[in-house]
Design a protein around this nucleic acid. Structure first.
Lengths: 156, 156
DNA sequence: GGGAGTGTGTAACGATATAACATACGGCCA
DNA sequence: TGGCCGTATGTTATATCGTTACACACTCCC
């Protein structure tokens, strides 16, 4: 990660690389990045912000493609299952992945006022000892910090 | 923690100590553990399982105290704010705290089939370096592992 | 050219959560 | 003692998030 997602950066390149990565991955794995799925990914990529499924529906509607909830949820499900986007549990919302290919265990910093989200890597073996002791088989982890992003700290 | 919450244990004592701890804490801090709040805590304490707000409403109704959603959400809000219960973000559900007084940064192991939840401590400074680098001010953290509890592993 | 698999369109509904306003009740003090 | 305030609860309505179920379209492949 050359920058944090909160800092100013060349966002157009951000979008371009993420889309290219998604295309390449789909190509390589025989997945279909259909128009709807691609458009939803682009919408998520417009900012490092968590968007709800209904936000996405609204934008699809605004650009003349009205759609019902299952359309958004299916596209999001595809993107999340294949690692192109992530769900932010705290917000019941979604963000585009900014580390395509290396995000098996993502962690997020979530601004509670503006919903900006920065992605980073979760400490790799966190909770492994406790899980072993409890006989619990970990399949996935949710690691999210809530707080204030630099911009919102400055604004207060 | 003498046992993990998944293992068989004297659950009656579990309930009794949690209630006593809540009472003591309320006493000490001038908080009111009113009948509704106490009853909701007791309901959460009946098992180491996550319950949704509407599950709680159902149980209140079943015991002749029908209530509307805000009643459950207000009680849960009280319990969560004061550390007597926690919200499991993945499930949009709630569990009683099993480590009253020492759970500033709880972490959970959540069974995806039976919703059993075991509480443990989150690794203390996880994400601190990344947050510092990003200029992000962490206020709270959500750390949840999804997987299979010992019982559900055995059942498959 | 017919069937299987996959993806999309749409209506209806279910689950989770909050807003807004009314009522009850104890403590305080003029 | 009566009025006021703060806190908690009751109740109606509504907002937000997510799924079920079923119809249709398209592609691939034999």
């Amino acid at each position: 990660m050359a920058h944090t997602d909160f800092a100013p950066h060349n966002h157009a390149r951000c979008i371009a690389t993420a889309l290219a990565a998604a295309e390449a991955a789909c190509d390589a794995q025989g997945l279909h990045l259909t128009p709807v799925r691609r458009r939803v990914l682009e919408i998520l990529l417009t900012g490092h912000r968590a968007l709800g499924a209904y936000d996405i529906l609204e934008r699809l509607g605004a650009e003349g493609r009205p759609a019902q909830p299952p359309v958004a949820y299916r596209a999001l499900d595809f993107l999340v299952r294949h690692g192109f986007a992530h769900r932010v549990e705290q917000l019941n919302a979604y963000v585009a992945c900014t580390r395509p290919g290396e995000c098996d265990t993502p962690a997020f910093m979530v601004c509670r006022t503006c919903r900006a989200v920065a992605e980073t890597a979760a400490p790799d073996q966190a909770m492994a000892p406790q899980a072993r002791a409890a006989g619990f088989a970990i399949e996935a982890r949710v690691v999210e910090a809530v707080g204030l992003c630099p911009g919102c700290q400055a604004a207060t």
